[in-house]
Amino acid sequence: MDQSDALQRVVHAAISQRQVVRPGGGGTKEFLLPAAADAVLVSTAEHEGILHYHPDELVIRVRSGTRLIDLQATLSEAGQYLPCEPPSFGAAGTVGGMVAAGLAGPSRPYVGGVRDYVLGMKLILPSGEIAAFGGDVMKNVAGYDITRLNVGARGSLGLILEVALKVLPIPEVVQVYGLTCDPSLAQRHMLAQRRLTGLSASAYCDGELLVRYQGSKRAKTAFEQALGQGFVPVSNAGLAAVRDLSFAHTEHLWRWDGAVDAPVTGRLVAMDWGGALRWFASDVAPHNAGDKGVITWFRPSEGVLPALTLRADGVGRLQQRVKTALDANGSFIGYPALRPSS
């Protein structure tokens, strides 16, 4: 049901009472916004529905409150899927939340992330007015890319009402292979296997390297041969656990984003993206891997929040200027502080 008017009224009311707006969908990723507790939650949960879907054009447009699982069901009926493989943090997760959280699954290095599949957007701006950017077409360079700027912005630049997404045909075969090994051997394999045709995931968790093939039936044998000794077909469960971050941890969960060939160190919980994304569990921020990567906080333990800060470098300042330019009155929540304070 179209709830645009109602959502707009709620946003206007919040603005007029000088309350800060926090857009929300299914609330499955609220852990992403630890500091936003006093903001007014404006939920898109009722604003759902598929607006149009043209499988032969590989484009779907949906309302932001559409459940991710409903979107996925519609796509799979037509033999298509969302290649960015967003994590499933439960059935309540919405398309708006997926886009605003910008979290991409294991296929990120091979087929792209959420931002690579978002074509257009309609949103309630921090002023309370409704605007549209991008469109329903694959190629569109009119105006700055406000659509992709909102991907991963965590609701800080407006409330997303609609999203147009590029989708792809489901590959003929999807098969995960596993190899039990230690992290450093896993990394050697990850680096050596980067060029395999059909590689669509390369992750490490619980002492097992997980490599996924997707493509045609015919090319699968060649992939298996190229993988080499020791790899055995396994179920999707391990990789799904990496995607959904369903690791057991009592400490804080931290992410590290950096170069695939940076040495593997520390109390590693998992590696994904061929080694470009690493998860660490620890009460204090893990030692930063220098210029080879950046540590950010991701998910709390039961304990107190660690001391976090906004990026203070030139890029961080420019990001702040962009936020201020688009939300001069600070009507919407800010992007959360994720960097450990040193």
Binding site: G102, L149, G293, V315, Q319, Y335
Partner: peptide, 10 residues
């Protein structure tokens, strides 16, 4: 240096 950077996607 990785595939994701915190903050807005400039």
């Amino acid at each position: 240096t990785g595939l994701w950077e915190d903050g807005l996607d400039l």
